[in-house]
Design a protein around this nucleic acid. Structure first.
Lengths: 338, 338
DNA sequence: TTGTATGCGTTATCAT
DNA sequence: ATGATAACGCATACAA
């Protein structure tokens, strides 16, 4: 099935067929219709490789996603991100494929992989943005959009972590809590913003947060939250509410709290972050901040298409996507002077 | 960066460069080495589109994955499957992209999409195998491998659901349980096998399973397990152990059990299926059957490469991947005559 | 051992 | 409005 066969069947040239199929102006309406009818009837599909070679556009986006075992696609936030990106990209005519560091038994650099497949744009998420190889990809001339990180000259889509933590803390404050602790994730740009927002919001609310109330664990690692939780509960003046790095990590804190014979939220309140399904399935339902991963993904796709189609005229934008507090049942009402 | 530029730099023809790069026999060792050195130095990468057009091989696999909101990539079993497939496919030189029903604002059939991108093989998972469109894809002439389902003429990789349920039931029986109930998932080929295995294993063990002990819920839907759990607990002779459709669905049963003021496993035992991370994070740790999703994915990739490279000589195989009981803490010891 | 020539399917240019 | 033709980058059959 090539345009040549359609041309023969229609008694015209391949040039005319190509024009007709691509909606060019200089084709008579009747010819165009006839060509399209025959094409549809024969189940014609253009050959992506040939088109790509001729136009030097592949209508594909490369996706860089950390897949190294642990938390890759399995994390609901990232799978949501990818789903949103994929759906919108396809809607706009772009297929997506994965960029990886291995191909055919050889190690290749991300940028090489992207060039090899001629992708029109790249989507960078869930990677260590400090790795030179990642920076090389972002800078290699192919339009790129990054998630939760800004490279100079690249579009980026970011979850509003500042406002997210702020909303969550204010909600908890509104429930009467005055002694709020934050077990945050490991050191990343996202963590920095969240911790800064936490401290600033508490200050604005006139809350005094002892240093011991801000402590570190590891994202998505429940076990890493057990010791910090234990330490917080053992303080002379323990917090009345603990913020966890994310919904999954919260499970570790929850296990520790129960192990101490305490109840949630009667004895101690807790909140997560992300708003994954799990958070709403557990009883008591977790109070958390839902990140709009799907919207972040689809926004990234739209932005990337703009970057590709506007070429040199494109001015990189930074898009901030707000999240939303899911009240849940793990933050209880606390006495005003707790 | 094309072979032409390398040819100029090396003072030889493009044909020689092509041969040298592809390890042909009829090139002198010194020439080959020089060409490869220059290529590496210039950071040459072949153009995938050009190569694809010339060889009618794209070195890419299409992946059909249900992404319709709910449980797509978010499900750890499927993300594990995809990860395993992706890693192994890339190792063997094939990139992967997603086949979808939408492209450029138009609805296209899966088979069309696959042909458009010229993929060398397709990986079908997590789809309704009964849809004619899916069957069309499996039958369209492109080598295909399916997961947990057999199409005539297609390779397939299957989780050993028969043995899995059998091992799980026997483990539970070994813990002293004699009254075992099974809340299974909705009607699918996989469910059929699991239910059949459950009944047969129980029969072999001499267990009498009342009809009320086998009942239906929905995979990955905790809420759907609440009512069935309640009904089982309210029976005149309630089970001492309940099998759930999967680890996620178990959460619903767990919530209901706790709501009734019962303890796990002291008052009632329970088991899941899948062995996702969540199951090992919860306390008590869930007794479940871990499916080896990663191995299923990588096996599928190896098989698909065989199918592609052997062409007409390839004989479709069915590969069965065993799972493994994860003992956990939710199945307690029951009195021998319970 | 090396080089020349051709074609894969498509789009774009230019002539008709 | 239509068509002939070239070119995209690569691999290969065949000539040298």
């Amino acid at each position: 099935m090539t345009i040549r066969m359609i041309a023969e069947k229609c008694g015209c040239s391949t040039a005319t067929v190509s024009k007709a199929l691509n909606g060019a102006e200089d084709v008579s309406r009747e010819t165009a219709e006839r060509v399209r009818r025959v094409a549809a009837q024969l189940g014609y599909m253009p050959n992506a490789a040939a088109r790509s070679m001729r136009t030097s556009r592949s209508y594909s986006f490369g996706v860089l996603f950390r897949d190294n075992a642990d938390t890759g696609l399995a994390h609901e936030f990232f799978s949501g991100l990818l789903n949103g990106f994929k759906r919108q990209a396809e809607e706009l005519g772009y297929d997506i494929f994965f960029i990886s560091g291995r191909l055919g038994g050889r190690t290749i650099r991300y940028a090489e992989h992207a060039r090899y497949r001629n992708c029109d744009g790249v989507f960078i998420a869930n990677e260590s943005y400090k790795k030179p190889e990642v920076r090389e990809l972002a800078d290699c001339g192919i339009p790129a959009v990054t998630i939760d990180y800004t490279y100079d000259g690249c579009a980026s889509v970011q979850s509003d972590n500042y406002q997210g933590v702020r909303d969550l803390v204010r909600y908890i404050h509104g429930m009467g809590h005055r002694r709020i602790a934050f077990i945050h994730g490991e050191d990343t740009p996202v963590t920095d913003v969240r911790v800064a927002s936490f401290r600033q919001t508490c200050r604005e609310l006139g809350l005094d947060i002892p240093e011991a109330y801000v402590t570190e664990a590891v994202y998505c690692d429940p076990a890493s939250c057990e010791a910090p939780t234990r330490r917080l509960l053992a303080l002379e003046t323990p917090p009345t509410c603990i913020l966890y790095p994310d919904d999954t990590a919260y499970i570790g804190g929850r296990n520790e709290i129960y192990r101490q014979g305490l109840r949630i939220p009667e004895d101690i309140s807790a909140a997560g972050y992300d708003g994954i399904d799990l958070s709403q399935i557990l009883r008591p339902r977790l109070t958390t901040l839902k990140q709009n991963a799907d919207l972040m993904g689809s926004s990234a796709a739209r932005e990337l298409v703009q970057a590709v189609e506007q070429g040199k005229d494109y001015i990189p934008r930074r898009i901030i996507i707000p999240g939303q507090v899911l009240p849940g049942e793990t933050v209880g009402r606390a006495g005003e002077t707790a």
